[in-house]
Simulated assay, not measured.
Amino acid sequence: MVDTLDFTLPPELEAHEPPEARGRTRDGVRLLVGRRSSGEVSHHEFRDLPHLLDPGDLLVVNTSATLPAAVRLDKIAVHFSTPVPDGDDDRLWLVELRRRTGKASVPYPGGCPGEWIPMPGGATLTLVGRHSERLWAARLSTAVVPYLRTFGVPIRYGYVRRDWPTAAYQTVFAYDRGTGGAEMPSAARPFTPELVTRLVAGGVLLAPITLHTGVASPEAHEPPYAERYEVPEQTAALVGHVRARGGRVIAVGTTAVRALETAADPSGHVRAARGWTEHVITPEDGVRVVDGLLTGLHEPRSSHLMMLTAIAGHGLLESTYRAALDGEYLWHEFGDLNLLLSH
């Protein structure tokens, strides 16, 4: 592995289906733990998590529900990402157009402003203008979220070989507020009610944030666009309480890191906050709040690896990913997990 952002991922290490379809429970996936203080990398099952954390540690979890955000037409698919930032029209969203290629899809470069696309159920999608090279601002002729709940399916990329119901993409922490994210906050998927009970019984604290994810960019590896988030007042207070007493703040997923670090001032004090975040975490800027991250295994050159380097350091991340490759861990949202701890 020449660089932490560039390595070769063998196709056989891609998780093609949920662990339940492989004869495992949700919490039966594997867990690779890296500790920055010692440089140690160790192998576990995810259900071992309560024994790997200390009483007084705080897990910050994302409560975003996953929307069935893909609508398939004959030749293209429309992936609904987020409402247009700071807009007040629930029909105006950022979307990605993808060309269907059998069971998968690839980015579709076509389209022009003013073009309208007939959608299932008699709806119409009008392309308003380019938001970026990949995303369009587009207006649906009806409210987007109720429409997706009727006509949408979960976003699926080529490494997942068949459709799975929306329930397969919800975490135990998902709370439906009438909206949601385009893709699953997958680091929380292995949690079960029984595992949460064991964590709480062992003195581990949990606190919610919400960050609704936009569509991923598996081909381009772009940084995330602006996303909606909320850090509640109670969570901000609990983060401060834990940090003041020497406990660790461990984010469950990169989405939780992004929300917390957006809400933190330069000294690391977290305040209640909500809105849109464009914060991108890099090794140069580092992190101010988070002492650990529970996350999936990310693709080569993914922008998420910059965040992981900021938390774990270059050396530990390289060792961890080498161990994951050598140990044949599984990648992507239905794969195995990685816990990175600064101490």
Rank of each mutant, 00 (worst) to 15 (best):
M1C: 11
M1R: 03
V2C: 06
F7K: 02
E12F: 10
A15K: 01
R26H: 14
G28T: 01
L31P: 13
G34I: 00
G39L: 06
S42Y: 11
H43F: 15
E45M: 08
E45W: 15
E45A: 13
L49A: 04
P55G: 15
T63N: 07
A65K: 06
A65G: 13
T66D: 07
R72A: 14
G87Y: 00
L94M: 13
L97K: 05
P113S: 05
E115W: 11
M119A: 04
G121M: 07
L125F: 08
L127N: 02
R130L: 04
T150Q: 12
Y159A: 03
W164F: 15
Y169T: 04
V172K: 07
Y175V: 10
R177F: 04
T179G: 12
A182Q: 02
A182S: 09
E183N: 01
P185D: 04
A188P: 05
R189V: 01
R189L: 12
P193D: 03
V196M: 15
A201G: 13
G202A: 10
P208R: 01
A216P: 03
P232F: 00
E233W: 05
A236K: 07
R245F: 11
I250V: 13
T254N: 05
A259N: 01
E261W: 00
H269V: 13
T277K: 00
D291T: 04
L293E: 08
T295D: 14
L297H: 14
P300K: 03
M306I: 04
M306R: 15
G313F: 12
L316V: 11
L317W: 04
R322A: 15
D326L: 04
Y329K: 01
D336L: 05
D336Y: 07
L339Q: 06
